[in-house]
Design a protein around this nucleic acid. Sequence first.
RNA 1: GCGGCCAUAGUGAAGUGGUUAUCACGGCAGUUUGUGGCACUGCAGUGGUGGGUUCAAUUCCCGCUGGCCGCCCCA
Length: 431
Amino acid sequence: MGKQVYQTARGTKDILPAEQPYWAQIKQVAEKTLLGLGFGRITLPHFEDADIYTKGIGADTDIVSKEMFYLKSHTDSDSVKLALRPEGTAGAVRSYIQNGMSSLSQPVRLYYTGAMFRHERPQKGRFREFYQVGVEIFGDDSAKADYLVIMSAWEILNRLGLKNLIVYANSIGCPKCRPKYIAKLKKYYKSHLDNLCTDCQNRYEVNPLRLLDCKEDSCQKVAKGAPTMLDNLCTDCKTHFQQTLEYLDYFNIRYDLDPTLVRGLDYYTRTVFEIVDKSDKGRKNTIVGGGRYDGLVELLGGHSTPAVGYSIGLERLVGAMKEQGIKPPKTRGVEVCILQLGDKAREISKKIYDTLAKSDINVYFVPSNDGIRPQIKSAAKIGATYAVIIGQKEALNDEIILRDLTSSSQEVFSSKDIAEEIKNRLIKCEC
RNA sequence: GCGGCCAUAGUGAAGUGGUUAUCACGGCAGUUUGUGGCACUGCAGUGGUGGGUUCAAUUCCCGCUGGCCGCCCCA
């Protein structure tokens, strides 16, 4: 009684060996796709000066005002307040500026992967420590960059075998046209204020764009008659968005326009998008979220540089793979286990072990005095595909029994042919 | 941050204010010292945590911790 029981902290979890193949598969596919599209991997710190988030994401956003983890230590001066990163973009921008990447050949394409931290109330697909793959393109203001970014995410999800995906896209304009639109929107809503829920009365002041996606029936009625951002874009923003959509059409990427799509981070301009798994009818599972942020580099102290990016929520991606019944390829475990009886066989076994290991076969050999039965049992238990069996008789004749533990069939081979034989069989298995 | 539901072997579940708390799967061992999986037999393992009510709490009540659902928001 009274034994101390430790649990994971709220919103964190262990990823156990049984789950790792999903993560390995995602990592491999994402890496291959992104490197193949000209992105370079960058590794960024897990904590930074909190100011980059406050300034970049916006002090009034939920992420900054309610969800940041701040760090405390005994020796830090008060001059720099550190925070665990709640997302990757601000850090990537800081790195772009600090490392003078504006003098590299533009555009600069980067991707990164790792844990992010937000102090939220956990739910399914929502954690306090969660993993993302993040992608950013700096220095390209054309619709090509928007397209490339969306396409790369689409491609990763497709290569992983996901179905029922759709891109929701919207444009939220630029500092020229958005204020005008918001003024127009507020003007429209002003006469309807009495019909709105209390949340929306608040949104009217704090974040008018959010008025559009309220789920209350009464608010939705009002929202239907509201002017849309898309109808009020300036010419440049309109052209940019149209071109982006044309690229998506060209590449057969399924999308819907969603005029209510508004990202919760202040830095977004123009294109915003999500990629959603629609197979779960109950509610939408957003796997990818991103958009353009043309003002952020300058805001954080760099030269004015256009940029666009997104992040993939990996636990949501793993969840979608499981729900859609996608099995990741098996990782290579023990392929061959050597079983032996007697001293002479043991000596030979060591040589066989070296030969097989040199041929890049995953081989397991721990000498044993047990009988063949327990040895074969433990070989099966560690998941070996084949057993190499060397008894006293075989040791004398320079022979080896190769047993297929899946089919329970076995054949005798000369010891010098064994590596070749196993290699051939393993290659066949993979097809 | 707000509201609701929940917590029993490793996993999934059942049940009870009162001797050894149940079942399935899983684990381990044996039947079987030159051939594993099947079968049979046996073994081990459980009330998240702190407090309250009570003669007695796994059961009733409260706090904490954690999970899930809705809101907010988001990957």
